[in-house]
Design a binder for these strands. Structure first.
Lengths: 240, 240
DNA sequence: CAGTGGTCTAGACCACCAG
DNA sequence: TGGTGGTCTAGACCACTGA
Protein backbone atom coordinates (compact mmCIF):
# COMPACT_ATOMS: atom_id res chain seq x y z
CA UNK A 1 0.00 0.00 0.00
CA UNK A 2 1.03 3.59 -0.30
CA UNK A 3 -0.95 5.71 2.10
CA UNK A 4 -1.36 3.01 4.72
CA UNK A 5 1.20 4.62 6.93
CA UNK A 6 0.60 8.29 7.53
CA UNK A 7 -3.06 8.48 6.61
CA UNK A 8 -5.79 8.73 9.19
CA UNK A 9 -7.92 5.73 10.00
CA UNK A 10 -10.96 6.78 8.00
CA UNK A 11 -8.72 7.50 5.02
CA UNK A 12 -7.20 4.04 5.25
CA UNK A 13 -10.60 2.42 5.51
CA UNK A 14 -11.75 4.38 2.50
CA UNK A 15 -8.67 3.48 0.50
CA UNK A 16 -9.06 -0.15 1.47
CA UNK A 17 -12.65 -0.35 0.26
CA UNK A 18 -11.83 1.68 -2.82
CA UNK A 19 -9.08 -0.76 -3.72
CA UNK A 20 -11.46 -3.72 -3.53
CA UNK A 21 -13.93 -1.96 -5.80
CA UNK A 22 -11.43 -0.74 -8.37
CA UNK A 23 -9.57 -4.02 -8.21
CA UNK A 24 -12.72 -5.86 -9.16
CA UNK A 25 -13.05 -7.92 -5.96
CA UNK A 26 -16.30 -6.10 -5.32
CA UNK A 27 -18.08 -5.72 -8.66
CA UNK A 28 -20.89 -3.27 -9.34
CA UNK A 29 -23.94 -4.25 -7.32
CA UNK A 30 -21.93 -5.99 -4.62
CA UNK A 31 -23.25 -5.33 -1.16
CA UNK A 32 -20.76 -3.91 1.33
CA UNK A 33 -20.57 -5.13 4.92
CA UNK A 34 -22.89 -3.16 7.18
CA UNK A 35 -21.34 -0.47 9.32
CA UNK A 36 -21.45 -2.61 12.47
CA UNK A 37 -19.47 -5.29 10.67
CA UNK A 38 -16.89 -2.77 9.46
CA UNK A 39 -16.56 -1.46 13.03
CA UNK A 40 -15.40 -4.84 14.23
CA UNK A 41 -13.23 -5.42 11.14
CA UNK A 42 -11.34 -2.20 11.64
CA UNK A 43 -11.76 -2.01 15.41
CA UNK A 44 -13.09 1.49 15.48
CA UNK A 45 -16.25 3.43 16.21
CA UNK A 46 -19.18 3.73 13.89
CA UNK A 47 -18.56 7.42 13.19
CA UNK A 48 -15.19 6.58 11.73
CA UNK A 49 -16.57 3.86 9.50
CA UNK A 50 -19.41 6.15 8.51
CA UNK A 51 -17.03 8.92 7.52
CA UNK A 52 -15.09 6.59 5.25
CA UNK A 53 -18.13 5.04 3.60
CA UNK A 54 -19.98 8.32 3.28
CA UNK A 55 -16.99 9.81 1.49
CA UNK A 56 -17.12 6.95 -1.02
CA UNK A 57 -20.81 7.62 -1.46
CA UNK A 58 -20.13 11.30 -2.07
CA UNK A 59 -17.53 10.32 -4.62
CA UNK A 60 -20.15 8.22 -6.38
CA UNK A 61 -18.33 4.92 -5.96
CA UNK A 62 -21.05 3.40 -3.83
CA UNK A 63 -24.74 3.93 -3.27
CA UNK A 64 -26.27 3.80 0.19
CA UNK A 65 -29.87 2.92 0.82
CA UNK A 66 -31.54 2.78 4.19
CA UNK A 67 -32.61 -0.62 5.29
CA UNK A 68 -31.12 -2.14 2.14
CA UNK A 69 -27.44 -1.51 2.68
CA UNK A 70 -24.51 -0.05 0.75
CA UNK A 71 -23.72 -1.25 -2.76
CA UNK A 72 -20.95 -0.75 -5.25
CA UNK A 73 -22.37 1.75 -7.72
CA UNK A 74 -23.04 0.87 -11.31
CA UNK A 75 -20.84 3.36 -13.02
CA UNK A 76 -22.79 5.82 -15.07
CA UNK A 77 -21.43 7.65 -18.03
CA UNK A 78 -23.01 10.69 -16.62
CA UNK A 79 -20.27 12.44 -14.92
CA UNK A 80 -20.86 15.70 -13.19
CA UNK A 81 -18.33 17.17 -15.45
CA UNK A 82 -18.98 16.10 -18.95
CA UNK A 83 -22.14 14.34 -19.64
CA UNK A 84 -21.93 11.96 -22.56
CA UNK A 85 -25.25 10.21 -22.21
CA UNK A 86 -25.49 6.50 -22.53
CA UNK A 87 -26.79 6.07 -26.04
CA UNK A 88 -29.39 3.48 -25.19
CA UNK A 89 -30.92 5.53 -22.36
CA UNK A 90 -30.77 8.56 -24.60
CA UNK A 91 -32.79 6.87 -27.26
CA UNK A 92 -35.31 5.21 -25.00
CA UNK A 93 -35.74 8.51 -23.15
CA UNK A 94 -36.98 9.96 -26.42
CA UNK A 95 -39.56 7.25 -26.58
CA UNK A 96 -37.91 5.47 -29.47
CA UNK A 97 -37.01 1.81 -29.73
CA UNK A 98 -33.33 1.07 -29.23
CA UNK A 99 -31.32 -1.61 -30.97
CA UNK A 100 -27.65 -2.30 -31.54
CA UNK A 101 -26.60 -3.93 -34.79
CA UNK A 102 -23.26 -5.64 -34.60
CA UNK A 103 -21.45 -5.36 -37.91
CA UNK A 104 -18.21 -7.14 -37.12
CA UNK A 105 -16.19 -8.41 -34.21
CA UNK A 106 -12.80 -10.02 -34.14
CA UNK A 107 -9.90 -10.62 -31.85
CA UNK A 108 -6.60 -9.22 -32.98
CA UNK A 109 -3.22 -7.95 -31.84
CA UNK A 110 -2.54 -4.21 -31.60
CA UNK A 111 -1.59 -2.67 -34.93
CA UNK A 112 2.15 -2.54 -35.44
CA UNK A 113 3.50 0.93 -34.88
CA UNK A 114 0.38 2.15 -33.13
CA UNK A 115 1.64 3.16 -29.70
CA UNK A 116 -1.80 3.95 -28.36
CA UNK A 117 -3.20 0.55 -29.33
CA UNK A 118 -0.17 -1.14 -27.80
CA UNK A 119 -0.71 0.73 -24.55
CA UNK A 120 -4.39 -0.15 -24.60
CA UNK A 121 -3.61 -3.82 -25.14
CA UNK A 122 -1.08 -3.80 -22.31
CA UNK A 123 0.68 -6.86 -23.70
CA UNK A 124 -2.56 -8.75 -24.35
CA UNK A 125 -4.93 -8.96 -27.28
CA UNK A 126 -7.67 -6.61 -28.40
CA UNK A 127 -11.29 -7.14 -29.28
CA UNK A 128 -12.20 -4.98 -32.28
CA UNK A 129 -15.88 -4.23 -32.87
CA UNK A 130 -17.94 -2.24 -35.33
CA UNK A 131 -21.63 -1.63 -34.99
CA UNK A 132 -24.51 0.79 -35.30
CA UNK A 133 -26.93 2.16 -32.75
CA UNK A 134 -30.47 2.29 -34.09
CA UNK A 135 -33.37 4.45 -32.96
CA UNK A 136 -36.69 3.06 -34.16
CA UNK A 137 -34.79 1.15 -36.80
CA UNK A 138 -33.02 4.24 -38.17
CA UNK A 139 -29.25 4.57 -37.73
CA UNK A 140 -28.40 6.95 -34.91
CA UNK A 141 -24.68 6.49 -34.38
CA UNK A 142 -21.77 4.44 -35.67
CA UNK A 143 -19.42 2.83 -33.21
CA UNK A 144 -15.89 1.51 -33.63
CA UNK A 145 -14.46 0.07 -30.45
CA UNK A 146 -11.37 -1.61 -29.15
CA UNK A 147 -11.49 -3.47 -25.84
CA UNK A 148 -8.42 -4.59 -23.95
CA UNK A 149 -8.91 -8.29 -23.27
CA UNK A 150 -6.35 -8.01 -20.52
CA UNK A 151 -8.49 -5.45 -18.72
CA UNK A 152 -11.79 -7.16 -19.54
CA UNK A 153 -11.19 -10.82 -20.38
CA UNK A 154 -14.88 -11.66 -20.01
CA UNK A 155 -15.60 -9.50 -23.07
CA UNK A 156 -14.37 -12.40 -25.22
CA UNK A 157 -17.44 -14.41 -24.17
CA UNK A 158 -20.00 -11.62 -24.33
CA UNK A 159 -22.66 -11.65 -27.04
CA UNK A 160 -22.66 -8.15 -28.47
CA UNK A 161 -25.55 -8.99 -30.73
CA UNK A 162 -27.71 -8.90 -27.62
CA UNK A 163 -26.18 -6.03 -25.68
CA UNK A 164 -24.12 -3.14 -27.01
CA UNK A 165 -20.43 -3.11 -26.08
CA UNK A 166 -20.85 0.16 -24.18
CA UNK A 167 -23.69 -1.19 -22.07
CA UNK A 168 -21.85 -4.45 -21.47
CA UNK A 169 -18.75 -2.63 -20.28
CA UNK A 170 -20.74 -0.37 -17.99
CA UNK A 171 -22.23 -3.42 -16.32
CA UNK A 172 -19.04 -5.41 -16.03
CA UNK A 173 -16.10 -3.06 -15.73
CA UNK A 174 -15.76 -0.12 -13.35
CA UNK A 175 -13.99 2.91 -14.75
CA UNK A 176 -12.18 5.62 -12.88
CA UNK A 177 -11.18 8.00 -15.61
CA UNK A 178 -12.26 8.87 -19.11
CA UNK A 179 -11.25 11.28 -21.80
CA UNK A 180 -13.35 12.56 -24.66
CA UNK A 181 -12.05 14.21 -27.77
CA UNK A 182 -14.75 15.86 -29.82
CA UNK A 183 -14.49 17.09 -33.37
CA UNK A 184 -16.57 17.46 -36.51
CA UNK A 185 -16.18 15.82 -39.92
CA UNK A 186 -17.97 15.75 -43.21
CA UNK A 187 -19.56 12.37 -43.77
CA UNK A 188 -17.74 10.48 -46.50
CA UNK A 189 -19.47 7.88 -48.66
CA UNK A 190 -19.62 4.88 -46.32
CA UNK A 191 -20.46 6.95 -43.24
CA UNK A 192 -23.13 8.89 -45.09
CA UNK A 193 -24.64 5.66 -46.28
CA UNK A 194 -24.52 4.03 -42.86
CA UNK A 195 -26.17 7.02 -41.21
CA UNK A 196 -28.54 7.69 -44.10
CA UNK A 197 -27.17 11.20 -44.61
CA UNK A 198 -26.24 13.20 -47.67
CA UNK A 199 -22.54 12.90 -48.46
CA UNK A 200 -20.68 15.80 -46.88
CA UNK A 201 -23.19 16.29 -44.06
CA UNK A 202 -21.58 17.48 -40.83
CA UNK A 203 -21.08 14.77 -38.22
CA UNK A 204 -20.00 14.93 -34.62
CA UNK A 205 -17.15 12.59 -33.74
CA UNK A 206 -16.48 11.54 -30.15
CA UNK A 207 -13.37 9.54 -29.38
CA UNK A 208 -13.32 8.27 -25.82
CA UNK A 209 -10.60 6.54 -23.90
CA UNK A 210 -11.33 4.90 -20.55
CA UNK A 211 -9.15 3.85 -17.63
CA UNK A 212 -9.55 1.85 -14.45
CA UNK A 213 -6.97 2.80 -11.85
CA UNK A 214 -4.41 3.70 -14.49
CA UNK A 215 -5.07 0.65 -16.66
CA UNK A 216 -6.51 1.21 -20.11
CA UNK A 217 -9.87 -0.42 -20.73
CA UNK A 218 -11.32 0.64 -24.05
CA UNK A 219 -11.17 3.08 -26.95
CA UNK A 220 -14.31 4.02 -28.79
CA UNK A 221 -15.05 6.27 -31.73
CA UNK A 222 -18.65 7.36 -32.18
CA UNK A 223 -20.03 9.21 -35.18
CA UNK A 224 -23.33 11.08 -34.80
CA UNK A 225 -25.37 13.04 -37.32
CA UNK A 226 -24.17 16.52 -36.39
CA UNK A 227 -27.35 18.49 -36.71
CA UNK A 228 -29.57 15.90 -35.10
CA UNK A 229 -27.48 15.28 -32.05
CA UNK A 230 -26.10 17.39 -29.28
CA UNK A 231 -23.70 16.63 -26.48
CA UNK A 232 -24.46 18.38 -23.23
CA UNK A 233 -21.98 19.06 -20.46
CA UNK A 234 -22.81 20.82 -17.26
CA UNK A 235 -20.23 21.58 -14.62
CA UNK A 236 -18.84 23.88 -11.99
CA UNK A 237 -15.39 25.29 -11.29
CA UNK A 238 -14.79 21.99 -9.56
CA UNK A 239 -11.81 20.52 -7.86
CA UNK A 240 -9.53 19.10 -10.51
CA UNK B 1 -34.35 29.91 1.63
CA UNK B 2 -35.22 26.63 0.01
CA UNK B 3 -33.62 23.74 1.83
CA UNK B 4 -33.87 25.36 5.25
CA UNK B 5 -36.74 23.13 6.18
CA UNK B 6 -36.15 19.47 5.55
CA UNK B 7 -32.38 19.46 5.37
CA UNK B 8 -30.20 18.21 8.18
CA UNK B 9 -28.41 20.67 10.43
CA UNK B 10 -24.98 20.27 8.87
CA UNK B 11 -26.51 20.74 5.44
CA UNK B 12 -28.18 23.93 6.54
CA UNK B 13 -24.97 25.24 8.07
CA UNK B 14 -23.17 24.43 4.87
CA UNK B 15 -25.80 26.09 2.71
CA UNK B 16 -25.76 29.12 4.98
CA UNK B 17 -22.01 29.61 4.68
CA UNK B 18 -22.09 28.83 0.96
CA UNK B 19 -24.71 31.53 0.45
CA UNK B 20 -22.54 34.13 2.16
CA UNK B 21 -19.58 33.21 -0.02
CA UNK B 22 -21.44 33.08 -3.33
CA UNK B 23 -23.45 36.15 -2.40
CA UNK B 24 -20.25 38.10 -1.91
CA UNK B 25 -20.69 38.84 1.81
CA UNK B 26 -17.56 36.84 2.46
CA UNK B 27 -15.11 37.64 -0.34
CA UNK B 28 -12.11 35.50 -1.23
CA UNK B 29 -9.58 35.57 1.59
CA UNK B 30 -12.19 36.29 4.25
CA UNK B 31 -11.59 34.39 7.44
CA UNK B 32 -14.49 32.27 8.66
CA UNK B 33 -15.48 32.12 12.31
CA UNK B 34 -13.62 29.40 14.17
CA UNK B 35 -15.45 26.18 14.85
CA UNK B 36 -16.10 27.07 18.48
CA UNK B 37 -17.77 30.28 17.36
CA UNK B 38 -19.92 28.45 14.82
CA UNK B 39 -20.94 25.98 17.54
CA UNK B 40 -22.47 28.75 19.59
CA UNK B 41 -23.96 30.48 16.52
CA UNK B 42 -25.78 27.35 15.44
CA UNK B 43 -26.16 25.85 18.89
CA UNK B 44 -24.71 22.47 18.01
CA UNK B 45 -21.70 20.30 18.67
CA UNK B 46 -18.33 20.73 17.06
CA UNK B 47 -18.64 17.54 14.99
CA UNK B 48 -21.66 18.98 13.24
CA UNK B 49 -19.95 22.26 12.46
CA UNK B 50 -16.87 20.37 11.34
CA UNK B 51 -18.88 18.22 8.97
CA UNK B 52 -20.37 21.27 7.28
CA UNK B 53 -17.13 23.21 6.98
CA UNK B 54 -15.10 20.18 5.91
CA UNK B 55 -17.59 19.54 3.13
CA UNK B 56 -17.06 23.08 1.88
CA UNK B 57 -13.32 22.50 2.01
CA UNK B 58 -13.73 19.29 0.00
CA UNK B 59 -15.77 21.22 -2.51
CA UNK B 60 -12.95 23.72 -2.83
CA UNK B 61 -14.95 26.71 -1.65
CA UNK B 62 -12.79 27.28 1.39
CA UNK B 63 -9.27 26.45 2.50
CA UNK B 64 -8.53 25.27 6.03
CA UNK B 65 -5.19 25.75 7.74
CA UNK B 66 -4.29 24.65 11.22
CA UNK B 67 -3.67 27.39 13.67
CA UNK B 68 -4.50 29.98 11.01
CA UNK B 69 -8.18 29.30 10.46
CA UNK B 70 -10.55 28.73 7.54
CA UNK B 71 -10.62 31.12 4.62
CA UNK B 72 -12.77 31.66 1.57
CA UNK B 73 -10.78 30.20 -1.32
CA UNK B 74 -9.44 32.42 -4.08
CA UNK B 75 -11.14 31.26 -7.26
CA UNK B 76 -8.74 29.35 -9.40
CA UNK B 77 -7.73 30.32 -12.78
CA UNK B 78 -9.91 28.39 -15.05
CA UNK B 79 -10.52 24.85 -14.08
CA UNK B 80 -8.05 23.87 -16.76
CA UNK B 81 -9.12 20.31 -17.30
CA UNK B 82 -12.71 20.45 -18.02
CA UNK B 83 -14.14 23.48 -19.30
CA UNK B 84 -13.66 24.38 -22.85
CA UNK B 85 -10.20 25.84 -22.88
CA UNK B 86 -9.86 29.56 -22.92
CA UNK B 87 -9.34 30.28 -26.58
CA UNK B 88 -6.58 32.78 -26.07
CA UNK B 89 -4.46 30.45 -23.94
CA UNK B 90 -5.19 27.69 -26.40
CA UNK B 91 -3.79 29.68 -29.27
CA UNK B 92 -0.78 31.11 -27.48
CA UNK B 93 -0.01 27.61 -26.17
CA UNK B 94 0.42 26.59 -29.79
CA UNK B 95 2.94 29.35 -30.24
CA UNK B 96 0.65 31.42 -32.42
CA UNK B 97 -0.23 35.06 -32.03
CA UNK B 98 -3.68 35.67 -30.61
CA UNK B 99 -6.01 38.50 -31.47
CA UNK B 100 -9.71 39.19 -31.07
CA UNK B 101 -11.50 41.17 -33.75
CA UNK B 102 -14.69 42.77 -32.55
CA UNK B 103 -17.24 42.85 -35.36
CA UNK B 104 -20.19 44.43 -33.63
CA UNK B 105 -21.47 45.30 -30.20
CA UNK B 106 -24.76 46.81 -29.14
CA UNK B 107 -27.04 47.04 -26.20
CA UNK B 108 -30.51 45.71 -26.68
CA UNK B 109 -33.54 44.23 -24.96
CA UNK B 110 -34.14 40.48 -25.01
CA UNK B 111 -35.84 39.30 -28.18
CA UNK B 112 -39.61 39.12 -27.83
CA UNK B 113 -40.80 35.59 -27.40
CA UNK B 114 -37.35 34.24 -26.57
CA UNK B 115 -37.77 32.82 -23.09
CA UNK B 116 -34.10 31.97 -22.71
CA UNK B 117 -32.99 35.49 -23.54
CA UNK B 118 -35.57 36.89 -21.16
CA UNK B 119 -34.28 34.66 -18.39
CA UNK B 120 -30.71 35.65 -19.17
CA UNK B 121 -31.58 39.33 -19.06
CA UNK B 122 -33.41 38.90 -15.77
CA UNK B 123 -35.42 42.06 -16.32
CA UNK B 124 -32.42 44.10 -17.47
CA UNK B 125 -30.81 44.72 -20.82
CA UNK B 126 -28.39 42.60 -22.83
CA UNK B 127 -25.09 43.34 -24.44
CA UNK B 128 -24.90 41.57 -27.82
CA UNK B 129 -21.47 40.99 -29.35
CA UNK B 130 -20.07 39.38 -32.45
CA UNK B 131 -16.40 38.81 -33.06
CA UNK B 132 -13.69 36.51 -34.34
CA UNK B 133 -10.74 34.89 -32.62
CA UNK B 134 -7.62 34.99 -34.78
CA UNK B 135 -4.56 32.77 -34.62
CA UNK B 136 -1.60 34.33 -36.40
CA UNK B 137 -4.05 36.52 -38.26
CA UNK B 138 -6.12 33.60 -39.54
CA UNK B 139 -9.68 33.13 -38.29
CA UNK B 140 -9.86 30.43 -35.66
CA UNK B 141 -13.35 30.74 -34.21
CA UNK B 142 -16.46 32.88 -34.50
CA UNK B 143 -18.14 34.13 -31.38
CA UNK B 144 -21.66 35.39 -30.78
CA UNK B 145 -22.27 36.42 -27.20
CA UNK B 146 -25.00 37.84 -25.01
CA UNK B 147 -24.10 39.30 -21.63
CA UNK B 148 -26.64 40.10 -18.95
CA UNK B 149 -26.01 43.69 -17.95
CA UNK B 150 -27.87 43.03 -14.75
CA UNK B 151 -25.36 40.34 -13.80
CA UNK B 152 -22.34 42.22 -15.16
CA UNK B 153 -23.10 45.93 -15.40
CA UNK B 154 -19.42 46.79 -15.79
CA UNK B 155 -19.44 45.05 -19.18
CA UNK B 156 -21.12 48.13 -20.60
CA UNK B 157 -17.90 50.08 -20.06
CA UNK B 158 -15.44 47.38 -21.16
CA UNK B 159 -13.49 47.81 -24.40
CA UNK B 160 -13.83 44.51 -26.20
CA UNK B 161 -11.53 45.65 -28.95
CA UNK B 162 -8.71 45.27 -26.45
CA UNK B 163 -9.76 42.15 -24.58
CA UNK B 164 -12.08 39.39 -25.73
CA UNK B 165 -15.44 39.15 -23.98
CA UNK B 166 -14.62 35.70 -22.63
CA UNK B 167 -11.36 36.86 -21.09
CA UNK B 168 -12.99 39.97 -19.68
CA UNK B 169 -15.76 37.97 -18.05
CA UNK B 170 -13.31 35.48 -16.56
CA UNK B 171 -11.49 38.38 -14.95
CA UNK B 172 -14.50 40.26 -13.69
CA UNK B 173 -17.31 37.83 -13.00
CA UNK B 174 -17.07 34.65 -10.96
CA UNK B 175 -19.10 31.74 -12.29
CA UNK B 176 -20.41 28.79 -10.36
CA UNK B 177 -21.98 26.71 -13.06
CA UNK B 178 -21.73 26.31 -16.80
CA UNK B 179 -23.34 24.19 -19.46
CA UNK B 180 -21.98 23.34 -22.88
CA UNK B 181 -24.01 22.04 -25.77
CA UNK B 182 -21.92 20.71 -28.60
CA UNK B 183 -23.05 19.90 -32.09
CA UNK B 184 -21.83 19.96 -35.68
CA UNK B 185 -23.02 21.99 -38.66
CA UNK B 186 -22.09 22.50 -42.26
CA UNK B 187 -20.63 25.95 -42.78
CA UNK B 188 -23.04 28.14 -44.72
CA UNK B 189 -21.87 31.00 -46.90
CA UNK B 190 -21.10 33.69 -44.31
CA UNK B 191 -19.59 31.27 -41.81
CA UNK B 192 -17.44 29.64 -44.47
CA UNK B 193 -16.23 33.01 -45.58
CA UNK B 194 -15.50 34.22 -42.07
CA UNK B 195 -13.54 31.08 -41.22
CA UNK B 196 -11.93 30.80 -44.66
CA UNK B 197 -13.44 27.36 -45.27
CA UNK B 198 -15.10 25.74 -48.23
CA UNK B 199 -18.88 26.06 -48.07
CA UNK B 200 -20.33 22.95 -46.46
CA UNK B 201 -17.22 22.18 -44.41
CA UNK B 202 -18.02 20.56 -41.06
CA UNK B 203 -17.85 22.93 -38.10
CA UNK B 204 -18.01 22.32 -34.38
CA UNK B 205 -20.55 24.47 -32.56
CA UNK B 206 -20.31 25.07 -28.83
CA UNK B 207 -23.12 26.89 -27.07
CA UNK B 208 -22.32 27.72 -23.49
CA UNK B 209 -24.52 29.14 -20.76
CA UNK B 210 -23.01 30.37 -17.51
CA UNK B 211 -24.47 30.99 -14.05
CA UNK B 212 -23.37 32.58 -10.81
CA UNK B 213 -25.30 31.24 -7.86
CA UNK B 214 -28.36 30.58 -9.96
CA UNK B 215 -28.24 33.91 -11.79
CA UNK B 216 -27.62 33.82 -15.53
CA UNK B 217 -24.49 35.63 -16.68
CA UNK B 218 -23.85 34.99 -20.37
CA UNK B 219 -24.68 32.93 -23.43
CA UNK B 220 -22.06 32.30 -26.06
CA UNK B 221 -22.06 30.44 -29.36
CA UNK B 222 -18.66 29.50 -30.77
CA UNK B 223 -18.07 28.04 -34.22
CA UNK B 224 -14.78 26.21 -34.90
CA UNK B 225 -13.43 24.62 -38.05
CA UNK B 226 -14.41 21.02 -37.31
CA UNK B 227 -11.45 19.16 -38.64
CA UNK B 228 -8.85 21.58 -37.33
CA UNK B 229 -10.12 21.79 -33.81
CA UNK B 230 -10.78 19.29 -31.09
CA UNK B 231 -12.38 19.65 -27.70
CA UNK B 232 -10.81 17.52 -25.01
CA UNK B 233 -12.41 16.64 -21.72
CA UNK B 234 -11.00 14.36 -19.09
CA UNK B 235 -12.98 13.31 -16.06
CA UNK B 236 -13.88 10.71 -13.45
CA UNK B 237 -17.19 9.15 -12.41
CA UNK B 238 -17.79 12.24 -10.30
CA UNK B 239 -20.44 13.02 -7.78
CA UNK B 240 -23.60 14.27 -9.39
C1' DC C 1 3.47 28.47 22.95
C1' DA C 2 -1.27 28.43 22.41
C1' DG C 3 -5.02 28.34 19.22
C1' DT C 4 -6.59 25.95 15.35
C1' DG C 5 -8.30 22.18 12.77
C1' DG C 6 -8.04 16.74 12.43
C1' DT C 7 -9.47 12.89 14.34
C1' DC C 8 -11.78 9.62 17.18
C1' DT C 9 -15.07 7.65 20.74
C1' DA C 10 -19.21 5.43 22.76
C1' DG C 11 -23.02 6.19 22.91
C1' DA C 12 -28.07 7.92 21.28
C1' DC C 13 -32.42 8.76 18.65
C1' DC C 14 -34.57 8.95 14.35
C1' DA C 15 -36.27 8.22 9.34
C1' DC C 16 -36.78 5.24 6.14
C1' DC C 17 -38.15 1.26 3.65
C1' DA C 18 -37.66 -3.68 2.10
C1' DG C 19 -39.12 -8.09 3.90
C1' DT D 1 -41.49 -4.08 11.75
C1' DG D 2 -36.82 -4.56 12.39
C1' DG D 3 -32.49 -3.55 10.31
C1' DT D 4 -30.13 0.00 7.99
C1' DG D 5 -28.02 4.30 7.29
C1' DG D 6 -28.42 9.53 8.82
C1' DT D 7 -27.55 12.40 12.21
C1' DC D 8 -26.04 14.40 16.43
C1' DT D 9 -23.72 14.81 21.08
C1' DA D 10 -20.22 16.02 24.61
C1' DG D 11 -16.49 15.10 25.30
C1' DA D 12 -11.14 13.87 24.30
C1' DC D 13 -6.30 13.86 22.53
C1' DC D 14 -3.24 15.10 18.98
C1' DA D 15 -0.59 17.55 15.07
C1' DC D 16 0.47 21.35 13.20
C1' DT D 17 1.91 25.99 12.70
C1' DG D 18 1.58 30.98 12.93
C1' DA D 19 2.02 34.77 16.17
Amino acid sequence: MSLTDTASLHQRIRADIEARILGGDWPPGHRLPVEAELMTQYGCSRMTVNKAVSALADAGLIVRRRRAGSFVARPRIHSAVLDIPDIQSEITARGEAYAFRLLSVRRRAPARGDADEAELAGGGALLALRGAHLASGRPFALEERLISLRAAPAAAEADFALVSPGAWLLEHVAWTEAENRISAINADGPVAEALALDPGAACLVVRRRTWRAGERITNVRLVFPGEAYELVARFGPGQA
